[in-house]
Amino acid sequence: MAKRAYSPKEVLAKKYKTLPWGEKWSGPFGEVPVNETWFISGASASGKSSFVMQLAKELCNYGTTLYLSYEEGISQSFQMRIKRERMSEVQGRFRVITDDTYEELAERLGRPKSAKFVIIDSFQESGITYDQFMELISRFHRKSFIFISQEYKGEPAGKPAGRLKYKAGIKIRVVGYKAYCQGRFTGDPGSCYTIWEEGELRTSNNIEKDEHKETDSGA
């Protein structure tokens, strides 16, 4: 039997529930469906981990958020980030796990009142394959999966991560304490989310110093 084909009228009539966040988030990232797949990447020391924690806190306003800390575990740096972003303010809506297997995660997400937002940090350290995550996304299609990826030479580390990036509707790259959206929903591709203003200024000043050094050396 042939699968159903949709008319333009049927496509346009379809309704999507989006995150009701304010201009701070909707400006750079747009009106994002609550069950969208995210892909966040960035070099080490770019502000990526801080951005992810800030995003997690924002998402707690709209549902329980589960943070899978595969890469850091419950390390001192992770603890400091929890404190800095005041995650105790969302105590009842934020949970951290460190070592769920695919089977354990699937069982956890299948429970009543399980998390609406699932952050995987990082995809490479999770031990869960691309195909297994696609199964989870399909099975729990009402949830939002947010994947954090390591980078190698400015690109997602490994072919599976590259495939995952193309699958995601929201693609974000963090550079110099700014998060830039490369996804499908932003109306202004040039806009960005500032993670840490002081860090952004330091990064900008260092870039300017390097440019002056290059100019002086070439004179």
Rank of each mutant, 00 (worst) to 15 (best):
I195A: 03
I128A: 03
R84D: 15
I207W: 15
R84S: 12
V34S: 06
S7D: 08
W38H: 03
V34L: 10
K116W: 12
G127R: 01
R163K: 15
E72N: 06
T186E: 00
G127Q: 04
S77Q: 10
V90P: 01
G162T: 08
F145C: 02
V11F: 08
S88I: 11
T37A: 12
L164P: 01
K57W: 02
I119H: 01
K15N: 08
F117D: 02
I195R: 00
Y130M: 00
C192L: 05
G162W: 05
G190L: 07
D99M: 07
R142K: 12
I74A: 07
G127A: 05
G199S: 09
A13M: 05
E200Q: 11
Q91E: 11
A106K: 13
Q124M: 00
P156Y: 00
T64C: 07
S46D: 13
D216Y: 11
E85Y: 15
S7Q: 10
V34P: 00
Y180D: 00
N61H: 14
S88H: 14
A115V: 12
S46A: 11
E58V: 02
I172N: 00
E89M: 14
S144D: 05
V118S: 01
G47D: 04
D210Y: 11
T98E: 13
E104W: 05
Y70M: 12
E89W: 05
K165R: 14
A5M: 13
T186S: 08
K209M: 09
T194E: 13
D188C: 01
L105V: 09
D188E: 05
T101A: 04
E103F: 05
I195Q: 02
E135A: 08
F147E: 01
E197D: 14
R111W: 11
N35L: 02
G190M: 07
N206V: 08
T37F: 01
S46C: 09
D210I: 06
I40V: 15
A106Y: 10
N61A: 13
F94I: 07
F147P: 00
M1V: 12
Y6N: 12
S144A: 14
D216F: 13
R173M: 03
V174A: 03
A106P: 01
